[in-house]
Nucleic acid binder design. Structure first.
Lengths: 238, 238
DNA sequence: ATCGGTATCATTGTATACAATAATACCGAT
DNA sequence: ATCGGTATTATTGTATACAATGATACCGAT
């Protein structure tokens, strides 16, 4: 197997190294709002908490910085940046554009195999929707998007969308699973797939745009959006 | 000065730490194509080359991985991913959408101060264009976009666009500075600014979209686009 | 000659030791 | 009491030592 085929998940998660575990733990904690805005993270403290030395902690810090979740001031410290309600909104708006682009590119580049995967995905989604299997539906929802990321045939876009998808997964954990939205979502998936198969790039892009905006609407409507800090702006705490 | 005000550049560059230097050096080398695709980077070798120990090298590796420039396979090694001609194209297409979004948001959020900065930027650009000062014009061009990133008032979008801007800076280093394109570019900047001032979000977005696409066209026309590897593996390119 | 297995080596992963920097406390001069 | 400056401490930055893992070479059995 060539290098670039290897599972993209490993890029970041790396479940079995200490660094990977520290990274995941900190990212989850930050995205779940368990740290205050601008809270300082000390290497030894985090290390002791997780039973590891400073080395993996430092490496995790460097990654979190690039994800924009903490800010490192040289020789001074690491401060959590977290994400605010405004950030969540921005992420969805950005994702809307990018998923649109992804769907557009998929029209040109999708393979037969991936089309089949999409079809299977929709088919299974209908099944689990009828049964009310929320767990499986969430999984299939993720997978639908991941298939498209693969199908667009762009390393850059895939990488970017995967990153944002990570954020979204966490946000969604906090939102009620909403029966009505689930079936609407599947139908939107179906329409996107059909537009791609029909090679209608404009329609695919537009549908994908709307799909993400609808998902965001749903989050706002369910109100769980409020768990995130409102833009702290300043006059700062701490 | 509060934390979030501090210079966003430091997030990544950190010129004065060893890790920062290693990171920059490796990123530059990779983006300039000085490594072969899939070449393995060994920690000790890089460290010796730069006269540092493995620690800063490893931290830099972790960052490069998140930037997508190398892939790290746990317990095995780090392999450069580089960017191909296709990647450059994708970056510009993605940037087109994002800069459009940025301009749209700037319409709502731009401050008087930033509007004045934009006006000054255009004014100075005209001056240096007339004099043929390429260095200053490139600087002003960057700055124009950075002002917009600030003006959109979105931490997420700003962060993202700054990242891509880094790529673009390197790509542009390789492209001829083209007199005709320079003046066209300034005019496009002017029109974007005017649309923002006129609070015409649709127009601002559309102009910003086109501005980036035009910049890419120029790169392709100048042919220096070919310095990058063509997509290595799969049969098809886009 | 090929296969399987083991030993050796190279390389990464982690912990710790040391150096440099920044924050704090303390002390004296005014 | 306040200000400036120095000593001390806490914390990060870097180097090195050790552990674990994967790659390679060697060797014997078939």
């Amino acid at each position: 197997m060539s290098i670039q085929e290897s599972d993209v998940k490993n890029e970041v998660t790396d479940k079995y190294s200490l660094r990977g575990r520290v990274f995941q733990k900190l990212r989850d904690d930050i995205l779940d709002g368990r740290y205050a805005q601008h809270e300082e993270l000390r290497e030894v403290a985090i290390g002791e908490e997780l039973g590891v030395s400073r080395t993996p902690v430092r490496e995790a810090f460097r990654q979190l910085e690039l994800e924009g979740l903490i800010q490192i001031i040289p020789n001074k410290g690491a401060y959590v940046t977290g994400i605010t309600a405004d950030d969540v909104k921005d992420i969805y708006m950005i994702r809307s554009k990018l998923e649109g682009l992804c769907a557009r590119w998929a029209v040109e580049n999708i393979t037969k195999e991936l089309i089949e995967e999409l079809e299977e995905n929709i088919y299974l989604s209908d099944f689990h929707a009828a049964k009310g299997h929320h767990e499986q539906m969430a999984e299939l929802d993720n997978r639908f998007h991941e298939i498209l990321y693969e199908a667009c045939n762009s390393k850059m876009l895939k990488h970017l969308l995967n990153d944002y998808h990570q954020y979204v997964l966490r946000v969604r954990r906090k939102t009620l699973s909403n029966q009505a939205r689930s079936s609407a979502s599947i139908n939107e998936h179906r329409m996107i797939m059909e537009a791609i198969i029909a090679k209608d790039a404009d329609k695919a892009e537009q549908l994908a745009n709307m799909h993400i905006l609808n998902a965001f609407d749903n989050i706002v409507k369910n109100g769980l959006y409020e768990v995130y800090a409102t833009k702290s702006t300043n006059s700062d705490d701490k």
